[in-house]
Computed example of a mutant assay.
Amino acid sequence: MDQKQAEIRALGVLTWLVGNEELLPVFLGATGADEADLRTRALEPEFLGSILDFLMMDDAWVIAYCDGEGLPYDTPMRARQALPGGADVSWA
């Protein structure tokens, strides 16, 4: 997955979050973002990465998103790896 595809996927996750009345407030609280940030920062690759990071905090959220979109469960992880700050970290 390239960065453009990852950005499109992260925007899909953002759309899913905005439509989820229970989870959106959790996202806003966890990230410190507000609704204005969703509009003004939605095209920033770093912000899109934070959306994917949030989604991947809970397997149930990943499953719900991916099942709703008909995507493999590793899609958010692959998208995150293609965005800034998402490269695999080697501790060795």
Score class of each variant (00 low, 15 high):
60 A>N: 12
16 W>I: 01
86 G>F: 05
71 L>I: 04
42 A>W: 03
79 A>T: 00
78 R>M: 11
54 F>A: 08
3 Q>A: 14
13 V>M: 05
15 T>R: 15
19 G>C: 07
54 F>M: 06
33 A>R: 09
51 I>A: 10
49 G>N: 10
51 I>K: 01
66 C>W: 06
33 A>S: 10
12 G>N: 05
74 D>N: 12
22 E>N: 09
34 D>N: 14
24 L>N: 05
76 P>Q: 02
56 M>W: 00
46 E>G: 15
3 Q>I: 12
53 D>W: 13
72 P>D: 13
78 R>K: 14
85 G>L: 04
65 Y>S: 03
20 N>V: 04
64 A>G: 02
86 G>T: 02
49 G>A: 13
50 S>D: 11
58 D>K: 02
47 F>L: 04
10 A>E: 01
68 G>R: 11
22 E>I: 09
46 E>C: 13
75 T>S: 12
68 G>W: 07
80 R>Q: 09
84 P>E: 06
79 A>P: 01
44 E>C: 08
1 M>Y: 02
35 E>G: 06
56 M>D: 00
15 T>N: 14
90 S>R: 11
57 M>L: 12
87 A>Q: 10
60 A>I: 09
45 P>F: 07
26 V>W: 04
27 F>R: 02
5 Q>D: 11
51 I>D: 03
57 M>A: 10
66 C>T: 12
7 E>V: 05
36 A>Y: 01
2 D>T: 03
90 S>W: 12
8 I>H: 12
69 E>M: 14
32 G>L: 07
28 L>R: 04
17 L>P: 07
3 Q>K: 12
61 W>A: 07
29 G>K: 11
18 V>I: 15
90 S>N: 11
12 G>T: 02
82 A>Y: 00
40 T>G: 02
76 P>A: 05
55 L>W: 08
10 A>Q: 09
66 C>E: 10
92 A>H: 15
70 G>S: 09
41 R>L: 15
1 M>S: 08
8 I>E: 15
65 Y>M: 03
38 L>W: 06
61 W>E: 11
34 D>W: 02
6 A>V: 04
39 R>S: 15
70 G>N: 15
41 R>K: 13
45 P>T: 01
22 E>L: 03
24 L>H: 06
83 L>P: 00
6 A>L: 03
75 T>Y: 12
72 P>R: 13
81 Q>F: 04
89 V>Q: 08
32 G>V: 07
74 D>Y: 10
38 L>Y: 01
28 L>P: 04
40 T>L: 14
84 P>N: 05
73 Y>M: 01
3 Q>D: 13
82 A>I: 02
64 A>T: 06
20 N>W: 10
84 P>A: 08
21 E>A: 10
2 D>E: 11
37 D>V: 09
87 A>L: 14
34 D>K: 06
6 A>Y: 03
89 V>K: 08
75 T>F: 12
52 L>V: 04
71 L>M: 11
55 L>D: 07
70 G>F: 13
67 D>V: 10
17 L>C: 09
46 E>F: 14
63 I>Q: 09
72 P>Q: 13
16 W>Y: 14
14 L>W: 03
40 T>V: 12
89 V>G: 00
61 W>D: 13
7 E>K: 11
38 L>T: 08
20 N>C: 07
14 L>D: 00
41 R>Y: 12
41 R>E: 09
89 V>T: 07
74 D>K: 08
68 G>F: 09
34 D>R: 01
68 G>V: 09
32 G>K: 08
58 D>T: 09
57 M>V: 05
7 E>R: 03
63 I>W: 05
